[in-house]
Design a protein around this nucleic acid. Structure first.
Lengths: 159, 159
DNA sequence: ATTATTATTGATATTGATTATCATTATCAT
DNA sequence: ATGATAATGATAATCAATATCAATAATAAT
């Protein structure tokens, strides 16, 4: 079963989401300020991933004296609370690995960075189905698995 | 079935890979130069994703007068030939989308950027198995599907 | 309600990565 | 060998991200 989650501005829950985020900010010791409210509003109401500059520009419509630095700081807080994700944009990242043309995916060690490609993923057949359910037509996908490689696992046990 | 692909420096095919890349460069009208050879060598022999600066530093060991700009230019060529991929590093990307804590993934329109989360992916059960086969222990994963949303599909047909 | 504490803010400066420019150099077809 | 020109590296310019700090605003304590 594929479930579509709340994701557009028309969603009446948007307000509730912002209130919930505000509650979490306060409960974890952060103060609730007007600049932060403006930033939260932009992020919770958007159905697009946004760059810090885009958030900055949009939030200044209601908070004209907002500083870009405050956007970066708020993003950091929200990330620590796992309320936002950092999204991968095709073609913009600057870490390079030789590809293997075809349908292989990446498995990367978060400790040392060593990486291997793998294939034989069962899910790929499902990707188009998921997209179609949401009204999308797929042109590509990106999958990375993260973990510890054999060597780093061993070294972790030794300490 | 899970197949592990050539991915470490010990692999004797490494040399062949570089020759193959060199061949493709020439066949598509690019000239074969010493700086490029040095860059190709670093990328094809590495089992780590590398930043432009890392490629630069490593390649200068054999090509001391190499300029960083040449690294960027060569990366661009290799990307156009689909010989390399740009890799997503956890936590370094600066495009922000509100997350949905739990196991949801992202479906993004390459045209307008509108995005939805989805869940119910069958593959997740397979991730650990794939990792274990390669000696890794997984701590997380990143999946994004790319395509055109309903609206952008419609507009494309109108033109 | 008032005040004191201190987290937060925005301005500014700094850093660092990426891109643009251009004269010089090296590749490759002839 | 030679000439056309793609490619190079030095330099400058741009832009995003981070650090610093005095002024300000949010909260707790009174």
């Amino acid at each position: 079963m594929i479930i579509n989650i709340n994701n557009n501005m028309e969603n009446p829950n948007t307000v509730t989401i912002q209130k919930e985020w505000e509650r979490q900010l306060q409960q974890t010791g952060s103060r609730l300020t007007e600049p932060r409210r403006a930033i939260l509003k932009v992020i919770t109401e958007s159905d697009h991933p946004l760059t810090p500059i885009q958030i900055y520009d949009q939030a200044r419509q209601s908070e004209p004296y907002l500083g870009l630095v405050t956007v970066y700081r708020t993003i950091e807080i929200l990330e620590n609370l796992h309320l936002i994700d950092r999204i991968h944009n095709l073609g913009q990242c600057q870490t390079i690995f030789r590809g293997t043309s075809g349908h292989q995916h990446l498995l990367t060690c978060t400790q040392c960075g060593s990486s291997v490609h793998f294939e034989g993923l069962l899910a790929e057949a499902q990707f188009e189905e998921i997209a179609a359910f949401n009204g999308y037509k797929i042109s590509g996908h990106w999958l990375q698995l993260y973990g510890l490689c054999q060597q780093c696992l061993k070294e972790e046990h030794e300490n």
